Amino acid sequence: MNAPDVRLRRPDEADAPALAALMAANWEFLAPYGSAPARPHTAEREAERLRQQLADPTAWPGVIEVDGVIAGRMNLHHILRGALQTATVGYYVAEEFGGRGVAKAALAQVLDVAFGRLGLHRLEAGTLPDNLRSQRVLRACGFEEIGLARSYLLINEEWRDHVLFQVLAHA
């Protein structure tokens, strides 16, 4: 089996119907990890969400494509400038694309964006303690585990612990 052609790009409003459909199809798969909203978005709601993300100077939204098909999202959030020069990366890959190296390939591309085009110094990421697949992806891309954050993120109305990771531009 050939490796998939993975491309990370900035979204636009025309992507909203495909992103809403992808989330609806994968809602049950993603909801336990906090990667899904309380309920799947409509195309109109997804378009509004994209407009907000694209206008936010503290974010860099991305769409993951596999062989030309939208397969997930990879976003930089909480971009901080000044002395810190950091951001948080968050992502999801649709269930049907899992286990094919898609997240790893997209994460490598977002590292190029963060440390190249955006000139950041550090990226952080967090996973639920039992999300071993995502932890393997982060480690494979050079992230190091830095600790456990207790009650870090509200997921499905429950404060959940997260394992935190970081990677530096010039480690």
Rank of each mutant, 00 (worst) to 15 (best):
E46H: 06
E48T: 11
E48P: 04
R49E: 14
R49P: 02
R51Y: 15
Q53S: 14
A55G: 10
D56N: 10
D56R: 02
P61D: 04
P61G: 08
G62Q: 11
V63H: 01
E65S: 13
V66F: 09
V66Y: 04
V66K: 08
V66D: 04
D67I: 00
D67G: 09
V69K: 09
I70L: 10
I70P: 04
A71P: 12
G72C: 08
G72Y: 12
G72I: 07
I79Y: 02
A83P: 15
A83H: 13
T86V: 13
A87G: 05
V89S: 05
G90T: 03
Y92G: 00
Y92N: 04
E96G: 12
G98A: 10
R100E: 05
G101K: 01
V102N: 12
V102Y: 11
A103C: 10
A103F: 07
K104M: 06
L107H: 07
Q109H: 09
V110Y: 00
V110S: 08
A114F: 02
A114R: 01
G116P: 13
R117Q: 15
L118V: 02
G119S: 12
L123T: 05
E124L: 14
G126P: 08
G126V: 11
T127V: 06
T127I: 02
L128I: 04
D130G: 06
L132G: 14
R133Q: 11
R136S: 14
A140P: 08
C141A: 03
G142L: 15
F143R: 10
F143Y: 13
E144V: 14
E145N: 10
I146H: 01
L148I: 05
A149N: 01
A149D: 02
A149Y: 00
S151V: 00
S151M: 12
Y152H: 09
I155H: 01
D161F: 03
